[in-house]
Computed example of a mutant assay.
Amino acid sequence: MSENGKDGKEESEEKADRKWEEMLQEVRVAQTGAQILFGFLISVVFTPRFTQISPADRTLYDVTVVLGAVATGTLIAPVAFHRFLAGHQMMPELVRAGAKMIVLGLVLLGITVGAALALLLHVATGSATAWAVAGAVVFWFVVCWLVLPWIALRAGKRRAVRPGA
C-alpha cells in the first residue's frame, strides 16, 4: 500500500484514467478538423467542375479522399478501443494504444491536408508551384507537431537531470 492507502495497480489505473481524459480532449480538435476536411472532399465529386479535372488531378483527389477517410477513422479508433476495453482493468493499455493511434492519425491528417492543398492549388493555378507550397505547409506541420514538441521534451529532460538549474 502507498501513503494514500491505494495499491500501485489502483494508482496506475487512476493515472491512466486521467491521461485518457486528457487524450480525449486533445483528439477532439483533430477529429473535428479531419471530419470537416473529409466532408468537403466528399462533396467535391458532386460539383460540375470535377469532371473537368485532369486524370492526374483525379488520381490525387482519390488518394486524398482515401487518406482523409483513413485519418478520420484512425482518430476515431481510440473511442472504439475504449468501448471494447472499458471495464476490463486495461486502462494503461488503452492509453498506450490510443496515444499511438492519435499520433498516426495526426500524421495521416497532415498528409491529407498537404495533398488537399496541392490538389486545390494545382487545379486553381495549373502551376507546379502548388507542390512546393503544399510541401512547405507539410514541412511546417512537421516542425509544429513534431520538432518543437521534441525540442521542448529534450529541454525538460535536461532540466530534470540538473535540478535547480
Rank of each mutant, 00 (worst) to 15 (best):
M1Q: 11
S2N: 15
E3V: 13
E3C: 12
D7R: 08
K9R: 14
E11S: 11
E13T: 08
K15S: 13
M23E: 07
V27D: 02
R28L: 05
V29A: 01
Q31Y: 03
Q31D: 03
Q31H: 07
T32S: 11
G33S: 08
G39W: 11
V44Y: 13
P55T: 10
D57Y: 07
V63L: 06
T64W: 00
A69E: 01
A69D: 04
A69R: 04
V70F: 13
A71R: 10
G73C: 04
V79L: 15
F81V: 03
F81S: 08
F84P: 05
L85I: 02
G87R: 07
G87W: 13
E93G: 15
K100F: 09
M101L: 15
L106E: 14
V107A: 03
G110S: 11
G110W: 12
G110T: 04
I111H: 01
V113G: 12
A115T: 11
A115H: 12
L119C: 08
V123S: 10
T125Y: 00
G126H: 03
A128R: 10
T129E: 01
A130P: 06
A132K: 05
V133E: 00
A134E: 02
A134D: 03
A134P: 03
A136I: 00
V138R: 05
F139H: 00
V142F: 07
V143Q: 10
L146I: 15
L148I: 15
P149W: 04
P149T: 05
A152G: 07
